[in-house]
């Protein structure tokens, strides 16, 4: 498979009133052509910042202090803002979280959808609007012709998100970055939007980076999953690897707090105690250690490297070190291991 995008050793700092926040502290991942990669993690873990760094859409006080973002092998971080403009909304585009606020309230939606076409292609306004209408139909806006001249406030939340998606795909981008596109929507509408994204992926063959804090959504759309905590990845692998053979205690915690079809009435949903660390002074060792029931002395001293679990499955926890004691994960995780066996995987560390 082709790696169309590769992020290497990304570090992002934010200059704030209280000091420098080290929001991203060395993130590596890649995106293969045609696949969907999900990045999951709780609020503040740095998912959004990571993907915004790809397009260099950080807030003014944010700087990418280290790292590379390779797009077809070409480092985007070396490009000027003007050169990036040619890529944004064209080859790489983005869908935002809140459809209620991401559309310009004073511009008709026809114009908003046509805008990326006019910016990146040498087309007439008339043709662009015509194309915008087709795309609006494609994303499922009923009667698009009549609604081209309407303003955002005349649409429902779900419809607005469809419009935001239309804006993102109007140029058939190679990479679509979806930043929590379903979080602000009703559950029924969430499913529709996920289906729409899957359908569009098939039709235009785009690769998707999908950000969410909702593991339930991930299973439905992703090929691979990366779990993020406190500005670093802690585990990544295929959906089956991460869902049914999780290795990092943080991933355990996330999965343990998620209801499944197997969850019976007597089962309790567990939450992860504590709060994420303050990234003004990032901890020296594993950032999750203070909340980790399985933490070891080494966790507080040294950041764990990524240990290979299987061919495409890695996790950054000292528990995978050969010298580490064998621990028993929570019951719900053990159930998942059982299921993993039936899926043909192997629980044993490699």
């Amino acid at each position: 498979m082709d790696k169309i995008l590769e992020v290497k050793n990304l570090h992002v700092d934010f200059d704030t009133y209280n000091g420098v926040v080290h929001a991203i502290r060395g993130v590596d991942f890649h995106l293969n052509a045609g696949e969907t990669l999900a990045i999951v993690g709780e609020s503040g873990s740095g998912k959004s910042i990571t993907v915004r760094s790809i397009l260099q859409l950080l807030a003014k006080n944010g700087t990418i202090s280290q790292g590379e973002v390779l797009y077809h092998g070409d480092d985007l971080l070396q490009r000027s803002d003007k050169e990036m403009d040619k890529l944004r909304g064209n080859k790489i585009s983005m869908i935002f979280q809140d459809p209620m606020t991401s559309l310009d309230p004073t511009m008709t939606i026809g114009k908003q959808v046509a805008e990326p076409l006019l910016i990146h292609n040498n087309v007439s306004k008339k043709d662009a609007l015509k194309r915008a209408e087709e795309v609006l139909r494609l994303v499922g806006i009923p009667n698009p012709k009549a609604r081209m001249n309407d303003y955002p406030h005349q649409f429902s939340g779900g419809q607005r998100q469809r419009i935001v998606i239309a804006i993102a795909i109007v140029n058939y981008p190679e990479i679509l970055i979806a930043d929590e596109p379903t979080t602000a929507l009703d559950v029924t509408v969430q499913a529709q939007i996920i289906d729409l994204l899957k359908e569009l992926q098939q039709k235009i063959g785009t690769s998707i980076i999908f950000i969410t804090h909702d593991l339930g959504v991930v299973a439905g759309i992703a090929d691979r999953v990366a779990v993020m905590y406190a500005g670093r990845l802690v585990e990544y692998g295929s959906v089956n690897d991460v869902f049914y053979n999780p290795q990092h205690p943080y991933t355990w915690g996330l999965l343990d707090s998620m209801p499944t079809l197997d969850t019976s009435e007597s089962d309790r949903l567990n939450s992860i105690p504590g709060t994420p660390p303050n990234l003004l002074n990032p901890p020296k060792g594993d950032a999750f250690a203070p909340r980790n029931a399985y933490a070891m002395a080494i966790d507080e001293e040294e950041q764990p490297p990524f240990f290979k679990v299987s061919k495409h499955h890695y996790a950054a926890t000292w528990l995978l070190h050969p010298d580490a004691p064998k621990v028993t994960p929570p019951a719900s995780i053990l159930k998942r291991y059982e299921k993993f066996k039936t899926l043909g995987g192997n629980v044993e560390n490699v």
Partner: peptide
């Protein structure tokens, strides 16, 4: 606001973001 970020993510130059979206609003 979010719609300015979206406007920038469309590939508008900073000047265009200001003149086409920010100023009017």
């Amino acid at each position: 606001s979010d719609y300015i970020e979206l406007a920038k993510s469309k590939g508008n130059s900073n000047w265009k973001v200001v003149t086409k979206h920010a100023l009017r609003n």
